[in-house]
Design a protein around this nucleic acid. Structure first.
Lengths: 214, 214
DNA sequence: TTACTCATGTAAGTAGTTACATGATTCC
DNA sequence: GGAATCATGTAACTACTTACATGAGTAA
């Protein structure tokens, strides 16, 4: 149920259309809480029905209209309540790590490919996040500009500080994944060495069925 | 769809009942891929229907029976295919980090509480994971014993190696979260210092509604 | 006989994914 | 005139959560 809070925090800067929200979402919150555009539109309608946000219909061009959502007082309350609630820790799920647990069922070269793909992904992510932190620090994103504009001077450091701190946490996580993948590659090398010592080239170890299908 | 692969990998050691699977799941895979017992039972039935596993009905006591699931050849194939497929990177979602992004809407003491709770959770998790790695290395878990027993000598290092490597990755992640929380606490101290410099005690910054509810 | 563990689910609901669908507007 | 972008969804499906339900076996 956090998508709605991410959206509440975004519309706090001022009214935005679903389309604009989806775009700023992709450029900011998406690294922390991923959502599809289709889900954003449905969630916005639900939040509107619950009174957390309200839409004004605006003209676009000659014949068409669009709807810009703004925060209501009820939505503002929900937002402050949410930030001061301590959440249950998330239940962890990670396919890459699950798979790595059973690499003995595959070849050494497969393990290498998997670890390399893992490293490549988190390197790209780290670079993206680092660029984003730079932008946040220099207040170069649209969203940050709008946030700082309607905020009193004494909280500006906090606004920037909390956001950069969050993204730095994600960068640390990405770095940790890169290191994990690299240690994995070293592990594969070690295992290959041990195999060679025993005169085995590539030990295959298919999982053994214990039952016959009916 | 990874629950089924986690389950396939577990039954590979030999037939297990749903109940036993749920238990070993909690003690091993749960740190990597969380699942409720109810979901495990339904998934087992589905996998049985698809021929990935097969059940033998065993007596328990005088009047009752239980069903032990074993891997079929089709399930074994699915397992090897899965380990050699490179997955799409997961879409990230983390409530704690999302919330931390907007701590300016709450008090300093709230931010402190949140960071402390985060640290406490990941410290507990880290300790648990460290104990688990110790057990894996010494092959002290039931599951590991059974795995090593029916595995040829030349892959035993790989079996232990991949599993400990995975858990060490999770430990690194937990450590990174702990560090993030501690940096967060330091950030709060810094912000409090800046506020004091400006003669402000605790700046409150409620989100501002831009629309009135109808 | 009471409490605990073993054992197996169902049912209702929510969040998120994937794929599809449509049309207006703006810029070249 | 055509392409890109603005704009807003629906529909079907899947995975997962939460809560409930039941009963047999076993050890004190």
């Amino acid at each position: 149920m956090s998508l709605r809070h991410a959206l509440l925090a975004l519309v706090e800067v001022g009214p935005l259309t679903g389309y604009e929200l989806a775009k700023v979402f992709d450029q900011s919150a998406d690294h922390i809480w991923h959502a599809q555009h289709s889900q954003i539109y449905t969630e916005l309608r639900r939040m509107e029905a619950e009174g957390l946000i309200a839409a004004q219909t605006l003209p676009r061009g000659a014949n068409a209209t669009k709807r810009a959502y703004g925060l209501t007082s009820s939505g503002a309350n929900e937002l402050v309540e949410w930030v001061s609630t301590i959440e249950e820790p998330p239940s962890f799920r990670d396919e890459a790590h699950l798979k790595a647990t059973y690499f003995e069922y595959g070849s050494y070269s497969n393990a290498r490919l998997q670890f390399r793909a893992h490293r490549a992904h988190y390197q790209r992510l780290r670079d993206q996040l680092e660029r984003h932190v730079d932008d946040l620090e220099r207040a170069e994103t649209d969203l940050m500009q709008r946030r700082l504009q309607h905020a009193p001077a004494e909280v500006r450091q906090a606004i920037i500080g909390y956001k950069t701190h969050t993204y730095r946490g994600l960068i640390a996580r990405a770095r940790s994944e890169i290191e994990w993948a690299e240690n994995g590659l070293r592990l594969v090398d070690t295992l290959i060495g041990w195999s060679a010592d025993q005169g085995v080239d590539e030990p295959t170890y298919p999982p053994t069925p214990s039952q016959t299908p009916r």
